[in-house]
């Protein structure tokens, strides 16, 4: 198994990317309502937000953890700055996906090594990276997916 993990590290992301997963990527347009966002999140643990319907240009992401924060009772921190503390589903200030998504993404490209991508995920505390080719999302790398490969299930 150790040998196999090393092998996986040296592979290009392009080589391990699943074609089926590409069709099945969870995406939503950024001006979709919170309700449609939640209906996707009921089944998936994250959604990539794209700029408009039919587009593959990723502009944000909403994860389960983000949602948790938005579903819990809104609580103000001690020091309040900026607009983001006013954004809440409870108080009706968040109505679109755009309002709640994380806009700054850490991404990888199909030509990166899997090892580097994993390192990136560890450094940034992430469990998933969008694979971006040019401007468009072509797939995603998740911790689950890597485990499946390691166990020979993919």
């Amino acid at each position: 198994m150790e040998l196999k993990l090393k092998e996986i590290h040296d592979k290009k992301i392009r080589d391990i990317l699943d074609e089926r997963a590409k069709i099945n990527l969870p995406v939503i347009e950024k001006d979709a309502s919170i309700q449609s966002l939640l209906s996707i999140l009921a089944a998936r643990d994250h959604v990539w937000a794209v700029d408009k319907k039919g587009s593959r240009k990723v502009v944000g992401v909403v994860t389960e953890k983000d949602m948790l924060r938005l579903l819990a009772p809104a609580r103000l921190p001690k020091y309040v700055f900026g607009k983001k503390y006013g954004v809440s589903i409870e108080y009706g200030t968040a109505t679109k996906t755009e309002d709640v998504m994380c806009k700054q993404l850490i991404t990888c490209s199909p030509d990166d090594n899997v090892g580097d991508a994993l390192q990136k995920m560890v450094n940034a505390g992430l469990r998933r990276l969008p694979v971006i080719d040019g401007d468009e999302i072509v797939g995603e790398i998740t911790a689950h997916y890597i485990i499946q490969i390691l166990l020979g299930k993919r």
Partner: peptide
């Protein structure tokens, strides 16, 4: 505006 945001939340008027 921390205190104002808090008050508006109570009044349900943040939106």
């Amino acid at each position: 505006v921390g205190i104002t945001v808090r008050t508006l939340m109570e009044m349900d008027a943040l939106h």
